[in-house]
Design a protein around this nucleic acid. Sequence first.
DNA 1: GTGAATGCAAAACCTTTGCAACTGG
DNA 2: CCAGTTGCAAAGGTTTTGCATTCAC
Lengths: 144, 144
Amino acid sequence: MKLNDPTSHETAMPADLRMTPQRRQVLDVLQESCDHPTAIEVFMRAKERIPGISLATVYNCLETLTEHALIRQVNIERASSRFCANLQEHVHFHCEGCGLVIDAPPMEVIEAKKLWRLPEGVTVTGLDVAIRGRCPECTKKTHA
Amino acid sequence: MKLNDPTSHETAMPADLRMTPQRRQVLDVLQESCDHPTAIEVFMRAKERIPGISLATVYNCLETLTEHALIRQVNIERASSRFCANLQEHVHFHCEGCGLVIDAPPMEVIEAKKLWRLPEGVTVTGLDVAIRGRCPECTKKTHA
DNA sequence: GTGAATGCAAAACCTTTGCAACTGG
DNA sequence: CCAGTTGCAAAGGTTTTGCATTCAC
């Protein structure tokens, strides 16, 4: 049996993670999808394999799998959109410790096409960047 | 009277935007806030000034002000979080035409601290990037 | 056997919508 | 005056929660 083969749909579960059919299928669904499904979409696809699976379980699985780094949650916040009146070009630094949000201006013009490999022919109209980390205060606390 | 002074709380409304007390206060709240409030938070702060203001109006104002580029909406999607099992380092390209999401790997290691001006002492643990634009197909349609 | 995970239903949220009343230009 | 905006209430959709049942180890 293949273990830890990224192309396999039989990724080994970490030892500290109980392997249930629901978790297995949720992970499989995501490994077979390339369209970044929402929780609801994962639910519908998983339901084709485990008709009795519940939405709450899918949410549980997604959370657990994310915690164990088997999948990634694409949006930084599950929460609601935030707004700001700072119209200068800038990105956002989110402190994982205290939730602080700091505006960070670019050092130089950021050209997405030079930094990331994009398909030929795409048009880039904007860039939304969220930097995750710990603010100076929370960094100190971590070291303490 | 100061017009178009970004530090003023009396930013001139564009000629094509009807200036109502509600819009004025929602904009003022955002210009006085540096913590990127959510719609609900804007609502609560605006309520202190216009007790009768309704949440629906705040949503309306946020949408209108965003359309007129007087404020920015921080998260790309109002919609729900998406998930992916691609654990390779990559960012996401969202097509504004058809909604397609494409994974884009970095050309080289991205160092947030070199690209954006961050406060001294912060720890960076991750970078979430969403590139907005039009995929090759939708780019063609736009030119047609 | 037992602690953890599931399924279900209900609740909690956030956001949108429909519509009558109101108002800024 | 009147198109556009507001406030309210209700609906829509997503996510979370509580709890009895089931299950993986």
